[in-house]
Design a binder for these strands. Structure first.
Lengths: 115, 115
DNA sequence: CCACCATATCGACGTTTGTCAATGTCTGTG
DNA sequence: CACAGACATTGACAAACGTCGATATGGTGG
């Protein structure tokens, strides 16, 4: 499930109870899936490289060498990140350009700190 | 490595360059290790239950039933969370009480959103 | 001291994950 | 059209992971 579709927990609301409700099994499942997508050193570095790039767009050929992994492996990691809604893929001609989905990481971070 | 020991990235500093440096392999490795610790539905629920408890302390016997897992499995997950610096274990008599390490999840969330 | 209870550890098992080589697909070029 | 280059997909394999039953440990109460 893309990060953007994850339900936001009770924004606003003046009277949150002192003891919150624990996560349901389903919400824990979906949140864990998103976190698993980013909880990998290679994928963290890939996301980091995309985020650090000046124009916010990187093609696979620019990613293979910095992480020191084969092209199929990098492609696999990118697919995981795209499926999780963290990266966006845009194919132009022969190349595929990847960019950060705005707010995706922040959304994940927010849900993590309110678990 | 406990979350508390993870280096904080460049707090302050007025002149961060426009394009940040990508994560080093070592930092990606340690951050991934911490994220993996929390990126599991059972562990998310365990942390959630501890966080939602009124007095902030829960013993294992109170955790086994809500997550629907065997006692050894719950004990294993709790060990992972303690080793990651997310939960704190205090043994009093026969029982072991678990509590959230203050700021651990927030620290993780912060590093996640600045990757 | 012995039996009991809560918890931790061990050993085993099936599943998932990360990785690569080989191959497929599509696009631009000679 | 044939070829080359960029990327995706497939298949295979080892390593890591989640889970449980059995067992060990260590404090409590009779």
């Amino acid at each position: 499930m893309p990060v953007a579709e994850l339900p936001i927990t009770a924004t606003g609301g003046c009277c949150a109870p002192a003891t919150r409700e624990p996560l349901s099994a389903e919400k824990a499942q979906t949140l864990a899936r998103s976190l698993k997508a980013i909880a990998d050193p290679a994928r963290l570095r890939l996301v980091s490289i995309v985020a650090a790039s000046g124009d916010g767009e990187v093609c696979v050929c620019d990613l293979t060498e910095p992480v020191g992994l084969s092209q199929p492996t990098v492609s696999h990691h990118l697919k995981v990140l795209v499926d999780a809604g963290i990266l966006h893929r845009e194919k132009r001609g022969t190349w595929a350009y990847f960019s950060l989905v705005p707010g995706a990481l922040d959304s994940l971070a927010g849900m993590l700190s309110t678990v």
